[in-house]
Design a protein around this nucleic acid. Structure first.
Length: 425
RNA sequence: AGAGAGGUGUCCGAGUGGUUGAAGGAGCACGCCUGGAAAGCGUGUAUACCCGUAAGGGUAUCGAGGGUUCGAAUCCCUUCCUCUCUGCCA
């Protein structure tokens, strides 16, 4: 979440940033923040002063008692009695103000980077670049939901039987393809200096809040109620939370982690015509990269990550484009997001396969993820970034669709060592 | 799931009501010493919030929350977590 001083020191920037996101009622909410914060500080000052007085009296009582001057001690005890009541009242008011402030800050999204275009819908996203050739397919080309049946590699009906819609069962070469992609992505990331981690895929509430899924996306995560644990919607949550309550030293930068996990999303209310087949699932596999950087280096890192993700798409031979998301389409916690979309030639649609974002200090503020400067003794919030590298299902969809021929589906060259076969036929 | 033990600073570890932000040790940093290093000696070494241009000062924090008390790491209650053993199981 934003820090109060961000709002106070850059009021106009924050205001116009929120306007870019079409965030309603911004001025009013920001004013409330400042007001409550002022109240909070006034209350704290008053409380601290009284507490200081009370502390010094207590010390004096201690001294009197040691000297055996009970009467003197009793005399000044009366004063602390008064103070005690006042402090209790101030304490209550302080925590109310603090809680109000927190709740208010939770509702405010991150401020978009200056390069983020204004806009409301995905149509307003900016196409940064397009790369690769859209394949010319033969007459009888099929969308992937037909291809997977034809070659019997992914079974949705079986998934329905054991879990429900949106939980596919990968079979035979379909399952092998999943495993190959995961290994390929992990190996590539390792070569780029990302340290592999295998985090838990259930997380506690605190972790959900720290990376911003809670309270914003409460209803979108599966909750294991018996233990109050959430199934992760992305590895971003556990991996970034590895660094919750951590004070790094400057020499630790940049931290680069990669992890493969299944991801779980309830996708409540988002089913429609465009979500057939692998386009939208409740459970899917994803390899995620996370970076934690010095504030001065985060945009450099973002470009880095974007190029890295693009390199994967190039190696897989998939035509793709890079979008800079507009204010209205960007995630709640992000300051700048690039979406990578691959072209799926039978559906004739662009499919989002990666989203690479810089959160600046929005997450690290909740995470309490800081670093200590080399000269300065003060701690500073680090910047966090993450991106999919990559999400599997839509990659699979476009591989299947784009590489289909009359005699089968040709696998991308780079995957063949991982797969042990060249064709799905 | 049952029984027990425990949660203190970067780490180890002391501390059962009164200058305890917290002994002692280790680590780390700087200085002295040295040809250089080690050892030795000395100094320093938490975080958050608030007041202040600053220097500096205040408050809080010994898992978390509440209570008793003039005063709590220390007593009481609640809760979370970890470890060990038993049971169950991959």
């Amino acid at each position: 979440m934003l820090q109060v001083h961000q709002i106070k020191d850059n009021y106009e920037t924050v205001l116009s940033g929120l306007a870019k996101r079409n965030f309603p009622n911004a001025e009013n909410i920001l004013q409330q923040v400042l007001e409550i914060d002022q109240k909070r500080r006034d209350t704290q000052l008053e409380r601290d002063q009284l507490q200081a007085e009370s502390n010094s009296i207590s010390k004096k009582i201690g001294q009197y008692m040691q000297q055996g001057k009970k009467e003197d001690a009793d005399k000044i005890k009366l004063r602390t009695g008064e103070i005690k009541g006042l402090i209790k009242d101030l304490e209550t008011r302080y925590s109310i103000a603090e809680e109000e402030l927190k709740q208010l800050l939770y509702t405010i999204p991150n401020i978009p980077h200056s390069s983020v275009p204004a806009g409301k819908t995905p149509e307003d996203n900016q196409v940064v670049l397009e790369n690769g050739n859209i394949p010319q397919l033969y007459e009888g080309r099929l969308p992937h939901w037909d291809l997977i049946k034809k070659y019997d590699i992914i079974d949705f009906d079986l998934g329905v039987k054991i879990a429900g819609a949106g939980f596919p069962v990968y079979k035979g070469k379909g399952a092998r393809l999943q495993r190959a992609l995961i290994n390929f992505f992990l190996n590539e990331a390792a070569q780029q200096g990302y340290m592999e981690v295998q985090p838990p895929i259930l997380v506690n509430e605190e972790s959900g809040y720290a990376t911003g899924q809670l309270p914003d996306k409460e209803g979108q995560m599966y909750l294991a109620t018996a233990d109050n644990l959430y199934l992760i919607p992305t590895a971003e949550v556990p991996i970034t939370n590895l660094y919750r309550d951590v004070i790094l030293s400057q020499s630790d930068f940049p931290i680069k982690n990669v992890g493969f996990t299944p991801c779980f999303r309830r996708e409540a209310g988002s089913w429609g015509a465009h979500v057939r087949g692998l386009n939208r699932l409740h459970q899917f596999d994803k390899v995620e990269i996370v970076q934690i950087t010095h504030p001065d280096k985060s945009y450099e890192a973002l470009e880095d990550m974007s190029l890295y993700v693009q390199s994967l798409l190039q190696k897989l031979g998939l035509p793709y484009r890079v979008l800079r998301l507009c204010g209205g389409d960007m995630g709640f916690t992000s300051a700048l997001t690039y979406d990578m979309e691959v072209y799926s030639a039978a559906q004739e649609r662009w499919l989002e396969v990666s989203s690479v974002s810089n959160f600046e200090t929005y997450q690290s503020n909740r995470l309490k993820l800081r670093f200590k400067g080399e000269e300065k003794k003060t701690t500073t919030l680090a910047h966090t970034l993450n991106g999919s590298a990559l999400a599997l299902p839509r990659i699979v969809a476009s591989i299947l669709e784009n590489n289909q021929t009359e005699k089968g589906i040709r696998m991308p060259e780079v995957l063949i060592p991982y797969l042990g076969f060249e064709w799905i036929d």
